[in-house]
Design a protein around this nucleic acid. Structure first.
Length: 426
RNA sequence: GGAGAGAUGGCAGAGUGGCCGAAUGCGGCAGCUUGCUAAGCUGUUGAGCUGAUUUGUCAGCUCCGAGGGUUCAAAUCCCUCUCUCUCCGCCA
């Protein structure tokens, strides 16, 4: 959410942000118009209410016969107020509805672009592996080794579902555990979070309204399955005012993630690239309302992820995501894309976003600045640490050996009982 | 799932219809004071929205778990919901 006062004074910037983010800029004008009407009405309501308040207290001191007379007028005014209040309430909801859809302006060093093709590469790491044999795709290899079973996953739960068996499941476990330890070494507090959250969390983190189609809903209880633990992690302190010395708050969680992938029919249908359920280790940081700090933290969080990719000995690149590929609330986003031989391209494996106070305004999550002063909205940031099975694609394909076995990077070996090669059940 | 109790400011805790944004204590902040163990005294101390503004503030409105209702008037009475605690049942 954006500060309403700021939007009123910078409507052009917000319209511009909408256009650059490939959103309909008319939402800005819809907001402004309704906001203007609402405030005019609010003044009327408050005036009437003040009037009623003073006359009401004088009523208490009147003689009974005087009061009867005065009550007639009082009741009439009260009825008028009730009517106005009802309209005011409805209008307020309308204004909020539009406010929830206003886009956060992108940072100055974000390129304009229509979609992910407009993303700007900012670094490349590791050579693309050259092998003297033909690399098998992860799903072919996985099937051969008897460690990935997509057919039966689909039988059980429909398309975009899968089973990992034996070594694939062990490898997944190992990667996730390495990722968690990696973050705890960096002083992140590990948190176990709910996978089913209420509407306020989804709205607070910016997924609703707009993202309902992508979420599995437990409608009977008005809950949603999380698509990322960013949602519960960022929501932990919603409605609170944190002490300055608690900031920054750095946390990491491992959670299952659920995504309906509506509107992706026919896209990435082969293998484990796009699935309905996966595991993700996610890092979330809450800090002070400080642009400089926020920028540095963003880069630091990116580094936590690239350091882990280095430990996994995977080739990857980092892109500065362009405006058209940026979410409504994101100020800036860096994606890490990892080389996937089966795609013959880099595939997105990580996404590091900074939001300024977009999420924290929605969550009403503030802190009290050092010393004293008014509470301020925190800044929030998040980044993937690792997501599986997507990372398994990169591991299985890039570390594949001529005999179809999978080489295990040194950092991962302690998590696999010291084994340096996985051969599956073949 | 059943029975009961409760939810008030940073915390503790009063308040059963108008004098209550709310006593008192603690904590915080400011000042004063002080050589006998940082204590004493005085003052001050919530948030949000709207409008005005000489940008210092000023005025109005809202907020006592959430939402509705009764009433001229609600922290206080009624209803619904959420959460917490106690007991019983069930259970990984």
């Amino acid at each position: 959410m954006l500060d309403a006062k700021w939007v009123r004074e910078h409507a052009d910037l917000v319209r511009d942000a909408a256009t650059r983010k490939r959103m309909d800029p008319s939402v800005v004008d819809a907001f402004l118009e309704n906001d203007r009407d609402y405030r005019a009405l609010l003044q009327q309501v408050e005036g009437l209410r003040a009037d009623l308040k003073t006359s009401s207290s004088s009523l208490g001191k009147m003689k009974p016969e005087e009061r009867e007379v005065a009550l007639v007028e009082q009741r009439a005014k009260k009825a008028e107020l009730k009517t106005l209040e009802k309209v005011e309430q409805e209008l307020r909801a309308v204004v909020r509805g539009f406010a929830l859809r206003l886009p956060m302006p992108p940072a100055t060093d974000v390129q304009d672009g229509l979609d992910d093709r407009g993303n700007v590469e900012i670094s490349v790491s590791g050579p693309i592996p050259q092998k003297d044999f033909e690399i098998q795709t992860h799903d072919d290899l996985g099937e051969k080794l008897g460690i990935i079973d997509i057919k039966r996953g689909v039988k059980i739960a429909g398309s975009r579902n899968y089973l990992l068996l034996g070594d694939a499941a062990r490898l997944e476990r190992a990667v996730l555990n390495l990722a968690l330890d990696h973050m705890m070494k960096r002083d992140f507090e590990m948190v176990s979070v709910p996978s089913l959250v209420n509407r306020a969390c989804m709205e607070g983190t910016g997924y609703f309204p707009g993202g309902e189609e992508q979420a599995y809903l437990a409608e009977r209880d008005d809950l949603a399955l999380i698509g990322t633990s960013e949602v519960p992690l960022t929501s932990i302190h919603s409605g609170e005012t944190l002490d300055f010395d608690r900031l920054p708050l750095r946390r990491v969680a491992l959670s299952p993630c659920f995504r309906r992938e509506a509107g992706t029919y026919g896209k990435d249908t082969k293998g484990l690239y796009r699935v309905h359920q996966f595991w993700k280790v996610e890092q979330v940081v809450l800090g002070p309302s400080d642009e400089v700090w926020s920028l540095e933290e963003h880069k630091r969080m990116l580094r936590h992820a690239t350091d882990l990719m280095d430990l996994l000995e995977l080739p990857y690149r980092v892109v500065n995501v362009c405006t058209g590929d940026l979410g409504q609330g994101q100020v800036q986003k860096f994606d890490i894309e990892t080389w996937m031989p089966s795609r013959n391209s880099y595939g997105e494996t990580h996404s590091a976003s900074r939001f300024h106070d977009f999420q924290t305004r929605r969550l009403n999550l503030r802190y009290r600045p050092e010393g004293k002063g008014k509470p301020q909205f925190c800044h929030s940031l998040n980044n993937t640490v690792i997501a599986s099975p997507r990372v398994l694609i990169a591991l299985m394909e890039n570390h594949q050996q001529a005999d179809g076995s999978i080489r295990i990077p040194e950092a991962l070996q302690p998590y696999l009982g010291g084994e340096s090669v996985l051969r599956g059940n073949a």
